[in-house]
Write a protein that binds this DNA or RNA. Sequence first.
DNA 1: GTCTATATCTCGATAGAC
DNA 2: GTCTATCGAGATATAGAC
Lengths: 223, 223
Amino acid sequence: MTVEQKTTETEEKILEAALQVFSKKGKDGARMQEIADLAGLNKALLHYYFRSKEGLYDRVFEYMIAKLVKSFGPGLQEAPDFYQMLHIFIDSYIDFIRDNLPVMRLMVTEHLAGGDRLRDRIRSMMETPDSPPRLFLQRMNQAAARGDIRPADPHQTLITLLSCCVFFFLILPTVETFVPAARDNRDAFIEGRKDHVFDLIATSLRPVQEGRPVTWPRHRGKE
Amino acid sequence: MTVEQKTTETEEKILEAALQVFSKKGKDGARMQEIADLAGLNKALLHYYFRSKEGLYDRVFEYMIAKLVKSFGPGLQEAPDFYQMLHIFIDSYIDFIRDNLPVMRLMVTEHLAGGDRLRDRIRSMMETPDSPPRLFLQRMNQAAARGDIRPADPHQTLITLLSCCVFFFLILPTVETFVPAARDNRDAFIEGRKDHVFDLIATSLRPVQEGRPVTWPRHRGKE
DNA sequence: GTCTATATCTCGATAGAC
DNA sequence: GTCTATCGAGATATAGAC
C-alpha cells in the first residue's frame, strides 16, 4: 500500500480535457458531455474516476495548481542581479502561459468567481520563501538598498509585472483585431512582448543619475 | 410611434442583475433563477421582457457596451500634452472600472469565451478617430515625433497601459491576500495604483537626455 | 475499466390566474 | 405587468452488460 496516487493515462486524459473546458466555461457552464467528447471517452467514465462534476472540478483545480508550481524553475535564485532576475521572470512566465493557456484561464475564472478556492493556495505560496513572487519582492528590496534601482513600491511593481505578462494573453482576441502583427506572426509578437515589458520596467526603475532627477517634460499636475 | 425604446424600471433592474450574474458565471454558467432572485423578481418576468436567456444575454452585452462607451468623456482630447493625456487616461479608466466591476468582468468572460462577440465592437471602436485607444496611439506618435518621449512601440505600450489598469481589479482577491494595505483601505490603494502606473510609464518613456543613453546597471544579456 | 441504457433532477420556457 | 404552477429538454448521475 503506497500513499502516492498514480494518475492513470485515462485519468490524465480526462483531467486535461476538463481543464480546457472548465477554463473556458467555468464550473457551472461546463458540460460533462463536452469534456468526455474532448477526451475521446464517454460520460460514465468521468463519474467512475471522479464521482461527480464537483469532484472532477476539485481535482482539475489541484491539477492546475500543480502545473503552475512545477513551472517554478531554479532560474530565479541563480540570477546574478535584479535585472537578470527580472529578465528571467518575464521570459519564463510568458513562456509558461503561452504553453499553458488553460491554466491561465482557470486562474481567471476562479478570480471571477470570487477567488475563494485560490486564497489558501496564494497565501501558502506567499509564505514559501523561494516562490517567484517572494523572491521578486526580496530581490527588489535588495536592489533598492544597493542603489541598483531607484526606490519604488515592490508590491505595486509586482502587480504591474504580472499584469503585463498575463493580461496580454487574456485579451489576445482583441489585440489581434487591431495589431496585424499579432495575427500574422503570433510567436514573434510574443517575443516582442517580452522585450517591451522588460524594457518598460527596467528603464523605469533604473537609478537616478547624479544631478539628474527623475522627471518628464511636463509634470503630472493637478493644478 | 417612436423609434427610441425606453427602458422601463423593471427592465433596468433585470439588466443590472443579469450583468452581475453573467459577468461572474458566463453565459452558460448563469442561472435565470439567480438573476431573478437578485433583481427581486421572478423568472417569468425575464422571459416576458427578453423572451429567452440568449435574448437577455444579447441585451446585457449591448447594455455593457453602452456603459463603456458612455464613459468616454471629452477629457482626453482636451489634454494639452501626452503626459497629461496619459494621466487622464489612467485616472478615468481606473475610476470607471472601480465603479463598474461587472462591466470589466463581462469583457473578461467574453474574452475567455473566444471574444467573437467583441470583435466587431472593438474594430468599430478602433475605426473611430476620437475613441480613447485611437487617441492614445495618435498622441503617442505625435509625442515621439516632437521628442517629448523616447521612441517606443505604441501598440505594446497601449497593451501595457490597459493591462496595468484592468488586471489589477481582476486579481484583487489575490492581491488582498498578500498586500494588507489593499484590504485595509481599498480606496487609498487604488489611488496609489493610479500614481504607480503613471509614474512607471511616464518615467520609462521620458526622453533620453543629451549624452545619457537609456541603460541600466547590467544590460539584459543573452550571453 | 469501459461502454450503453436509463434513472433522476435541474433549468429554461410557457400557460394561465390575477 | 406580475405572479404561481408546470412542462419538457437537457444535464448529472447510476445500473448493469461486457
